[in-house]
C-alpha cells in the first residue's frame, strides 16, 4: 500500500524501508534509553528530506551516533539479524572529521538506500557512524560473517564508493569477536 501511495505521488520507492536512529551518550540513563528512533522512510525523496533536515554528523557532539538500519533490525549486536554478522569498519583520524566524515557518511547512506551491493544487498543490515573525540568511525553491518563471498564483495564495492586508494586497507570484524575483545585486539576476519 505504501508503494502505491509513494508511486501515486510520483515518488521513487526504495527496495527497503529504512529507520534512522540517534544515540546520545547520557551516562545518567540506561543505554537503551539513549537510543532513539528518529523516523522511517521508503522513498528517495523522503531520504533527502530527512537528510537535509538533520544535523550533519560532523556537527554532532562527541559520544553521539547515527544508525541507519533496515526496518525491523535494531542497531545493536544482540538483534537476531546482527548477531551472526559483522562490520566493515572505517576508522578516521581526528582531522578527517572536517574533510571526509560527512562525505563518507553520505556515500555510505546512498550505498544502502540505493541497494548498491548488487546480488549481496540483502546481506546488509545497516550502517553506524560514531562521533568520538579519539577518532570517528563509520561501519556497514552485514548479517552473516561466514558468508565470505558476500562480505568481500560488499567490502570491495564500499571501498570503491568511498574513493579509498588501493594503499588503504579496511577490515571486517565479526560482532561476536568485537563484543568479547577490547577494540585494539579484535580479530580482523577479512581485509580489502
Amino acid at each position: 500500500q505504501e508503494l502505491l501511495v509513494a508511486e501515486s505521488l510520483g515518488k521513487h520507492p526504495l527496495q527497503n524501508r529504512w529507520a534512522l536512529w540517534f544515540f546520545k551518550n547520557d551516562k545518567s540513563k540506561m543505554w537503551q534509553e539513549n537510543l532513539r528512533l528518529i523516523t522511517k522512510f521508503s522513498t528517495v525523496e523522503d531520504f533527502w528530506a530527512l537528510y537535509s533536515h538533520i544535523q550533519p554528523a560532523s556537527k554532532l557532539s562527541s559520544g553521539c551516533d547515527y544508525s541507519l538500519f533496515k526496518d525491523g533490525i535494531e542497531p545493536m549486536w544482540e538483534d537476531s539479524q546482527n548477531k551472526r554478522g559483522g562490520r566493515w569498519l572505517i576508522t578516521l583520524a581526528k582531522q578527517q572529521r572536517h574533510t571526509e566524515l560527512d562525505r563518507f557518511w553520505l556515500e555510505t547512506l546512498m550505498c544502502l538506500v540505493g541497494e548498491m551491493f548488487d546480488d549481496y544487498s540483502d546481506e546488509v543490515c545497516g550502517a553506524v557512524i560514531n562521533i568520538r573525540a579519539k577518532g570517528d568511525k563509520i561501519a556497514i553491518w552485514t548479517r552473516e560473517a561466514e558468508n565470505r563471498e558476500g562480505v568481500i564483495h560488499i567490502g570491495r564495492v564500499y571501498k570503491e564508493h568511498l574513493g579509498l586508494s588501493q594503499k588503504v586497507a579496511i577490515g571486517y570484524q565479526a560482532h561476536a569477536d568485537t563484543a568479547t575483545k577490547s577494540s585494539s585486539l579484535t580479530k580482523t576476519k577479512f581485509v580489502v
Binding site: V44, F47, W48, M116
Partner: peptide, 20 residues
C-alpha cells in the same frame, strides 16, 4: 525486480527541495 538506484540518480534528487 529489485529497486536499485545508482549514486548519480540519487544525487539528482538531493537539492530538489531547495528548488521546490
Amino acid at each position: 525486480e529489485k529497486k536499485r538506484y545508482d549514486r548519480e540518480f540519487l544525487l539528482g534528487f538531493q537539492f530538489i527541495f531547495a528548488s521546490m
